[in-house]
Design a protein around this nucleic acid. Structure first.
Lengths: 346, 346
DNA sequence: CATGATTTGTGTATCGTTCTACATTTAACG
DNA sequence: CGTTAAATGTAGAACGATACACAAATCATG
């Protein structure tokens, strides 16, 4: 008669543990949070019981009053091979702690991005790392007042409410021009991207500025083309650049992602790299290093950025309030896509 | 005198909404869950208030009693370019619903994997999608009894407690052999991988079986080499295969990831593709399609797998209890890495 | 050994929802 | 109208932890 579904697989709660160990719920909670006022004997007793019963605290319940020991990482998209590195960096720093990371993927839409951040806040995550978000600084500040936030790939050194972790993208832009100059190139094009969202804080603009600065310093005229965001049209745009009779002898690409497209298009059209054209990318992602690609690139260590950001976030969660703005110097990695200019005809 | 920190930024809760709308808390909750017993007038009133106040339900609090409207997706690692596709598929199906996805990254360690699954359960996520997990079926079943689970890239058609979504990897293995045979190759090697964790359910073994089946059916002797898991050593192993005087004329790789390494190594050593050796990969990832790589590959649409898995999970969360096992047929994409055998000497 | 200070453990209000049980209002129908 | 059934709204007990306030036990000290 008593065969009702037995729905309750009797989950072990803090109450179970307390009863089993013969102590109060409050005592167990104290041990869990290693709060003040716990004797070694008590701690040992409770720990043993927890292990034996396989107790795991309910994060949702925790989130209602205290911390969840979880941080949220917001990624705008996953196409860029630079991101897995960042994630590795985050996980590496988190590993020895009892914090865990959850990732949200935003698909480059501002509304979705905001809604994911809000979700993470609603989830009572203890802190957030945002990678190259497209939201305005004011909006970020609003969120930052609700939860500790560290941003990667977002230049806003004046920010008070959140930390930023970046490579010096301006310097990176300069760095890309230097080897071209050293090899005698004068006709150097930058293939950039129309900045999505609030472009003023993005990494792309900084790279453009660095490129321009270096060109002007060398007495050359900067020439930048901004690809449209739309993925289909960009291939046609790249083709147009390469088939132009006035085609440059050297191209600096804002990202390896598009640099690879340039190499592909060149191959298709019949332009040789590096004999006919030299290319430098940005990110030094794994594809760039492949012998068949062999693309020179500006190296920003994603793992380092992820690790630094995580450390900064931990500090902030521990109570630091003043902002920290970390800037890391990029380095150029030379590869086979880098040649020499051909003799000028006249 | 009354300048205490004003800690409370008066977050809008369901109580605030209820008070402001002049109804009970229970009424608001009903509207939120669109439960039975709400008049149009009430719904309208409450909705309006929610919008005006910018109320967002606290997920943690929700998790204590009802659903969180969040699903967890567990990824084993992010190196494989096949995964972003899966994620896109998941997000696509989720977009029109009010569910959100959070991702965990497991770094190929069984303990970490289990601990992330437990975290997601502790977080009271409503359902889980696991991509190529390395845990044993029994372990998965245990978890599946606590929360709806759908698994991608995990062959276990007998599973009762969870759903599986796969491409037919056995067929995929056969598919890879066919074009080789059609072109007259007889000396076809499979470059496989030592299966991590419980290999019997993994995709790799299935591909191996398919390869062997096709070879035997053609009256040929299967020859498979299993790379070690360790990332550093595998390059040396690949080199060894290529420099072997007895080197095969055709190689089928378990994944584009390693197929690309083969192409790289070949280039480095001076072996021409496809003149000296032909290669087929698996996954048809974006790198394979790049003109500079031009790698033939077995195509399993990651986006489709992600979408199917999400749909199955939704059904399961709606109450379905019987298992569903979806199998999708892969297709071969021919590309430039596919040549013809050289004349035999002798 | 009385007294105060410190350490250790407990009772219980609280967080923001959901959801069952119930009270009230409205509709339906002969 | 009167009676019953259906629809609509409300009260209040969970959920599982945290953390504040306090009691009890232990330790120092003159």
């Amino acid at each position: 008669m008593d065969d009702r579904p037995t729905e309750k697989p009797d989950r072990v709660t803090i109450k179970t543990v307390a009863a089993d160990a013969g102590v109060s719920v409050a005592a167990v909670s104290k041990v869990l949070r290693n709060a003040y006022g716990v004797s070694d004997a008590l701690r040992l007793n409770v720990m043993e019981t927890i292990d034996r019963l396989g107790y795991r605290p309910n994060v949702a319940a925790r989130g209602m009053r205290g911390r969840t020991f979880t941080i949220g990482v917001l990624l705008v998209e996953l196409g860029n091979p630079f991101l897995p590195e960042v994630i590795d960096g985050v996980n590496l720093v988190l590993a020895p702690s009892n914090y865990k990371a959850m990732f949200g993927v935003g698909r480059s839409q501002q509304t979705l991005e905001a809604s994911l951040i809000e979700s993470m806040i609603d989830y009572k995550m203890d802190g957030l790392i945002l990678v190259a978000p497209q939201l305005k600084p004011e909006v970020l500040s609003t969120y930052a007042r609700q939860v500790p936030i560290v941003v990667i790939g977002y230049h806003h050194p004046a920010a008070l409410d959140f930390d930023t972790v970046n490579t010096d993208d301006l310097r990176g832009g300069e760095l890309a021009v230097e080897p071209f100059l050293a090899r005698g190139f004068r006709d150097i094009l930058m293939l950039s991207l129309t900045p999505p969202g609030d472009g003023t804080v993005g990494v792309i603009l900084q790279r453009e500025i660095g490129y321009q600065k270096a060109m002007l310093a060398a007495g050359l005229k900067p020439r930048a083309i901004r690809l449209m965001r739309n993925d289909d049209s960009r291939f046609a745009e790249i083709d147009a650049v390469l088939t132009d009779p006035n085609r440059p002898e050297a191209i600096f690409c804002w990202s390896d992602l598009d640099a690879v497209h340039v190499l592909s298009a060149a191959r298709r059209i019949g332009i040789r790299v590096p004999e006919d054209i030299s290319v430098i990318g940005y990110d030094n992602s794994s594809v760039a290093a492949m012998p068949l690609i062999d693309l020179a690139s500006v190296n920003q260590s994603g793992a380092d950025l992820g690790a630094r950001a995580t450390e900064a976030l931990m500090q902030r969660m521990e109570g630091r309030t003043g902002p920290v703005h970390w800037l890391q110097t990029p380095k150029l990695v030379e590869r086979g896509s880098l040649g020499f200019p051909r003799k000028r005809k006249v």
